[in-house]
């Protein structure tokens, strides 16, 4: 089956093998390896990408479903050399440790901010519950997302 779709603003046409999942197309066919595989079962969120703006786990999407749709991966979230507001806030707040969950986190946070300009901490928690981070304890991530939406981070500076 051949499918046409757009990824990070570029049109692609790919001949699929029957059982191929979207994450495989992204990582192995298109060699966009910023999207990570942490569980392969939709439980950890490391493979999160945007399909028509919605954050989904690319490990659970049969690739044929993205025909005619537009995908954004971590490689397409920055504008040229300029980091996206979410990326820049992650850097400012030290919200990255090992970095393995980071791509998925940034995709989920970006999808949230696209529909919710001023999310509360509860909104952030709801939107990011599908993204596991084992390193950061999430505090710096929460602060980064608040900051990226122009809100004052709660601040956890040492006293």
């Amino acid at each position: 089956m051949r499918i046409d779709f757009r990824i990070n603003g570029i049109d692609q046409s790919i001949e699929l093998s029957n059982d191929e999942m979207l994450v495989n197309v992204i990582r192995e066919r298109l060699e966009l390896r910023g999207t990570k595989i942490g569980c392969g079962n939709g439980e950890c969120g490391a493979c999160t990408v945007l399909v028509d703006g919605d954050a989904v786990c690319s490990c659970l999407i049969p690739a044929h479903r993205v025909a005619g749709r537009s995908i954004t991966t971590i490689e397409g979230i920055a504008k040229e050399n300029e980091l996206s507001p979410v990326q820049a806030a992650f850097v400012r707040h030290g919200a990255v440790q090992c970095g393995f969950c980071t791509s998925g986190m940034i995709m989920s946070a970006s999808a949230l901010l696209a529909v919710n300009l001023k999310p509360t901490e509860a909104d952030i928690s709801h939107a990011l519950a599908g993204n596991i981070c084992r390193c950061t304890g999430y505090r710096q991530i929460i602060d980064a997302v608040l900051d990226a939406s122009g809100q004052t981070p709660l601040g956890h500076e040492p006293s």
């Binding site: 999207t35 595989i37 971590i74 490689e75 990326q87 850097v91 030290g94 393995f100 980071t102 940034i106």
Partner: peptide
């Protein structure tokens, strides 16, 4: 963080 520019753009190469 050292190397953050690469990590934040998805360019860091892990074993997988």
């Amino acid at each position: 963080q050292a190397g953050i520019e690469t990590r934040i753009r998805g360019g860091a190469i892990y074993t997988q």
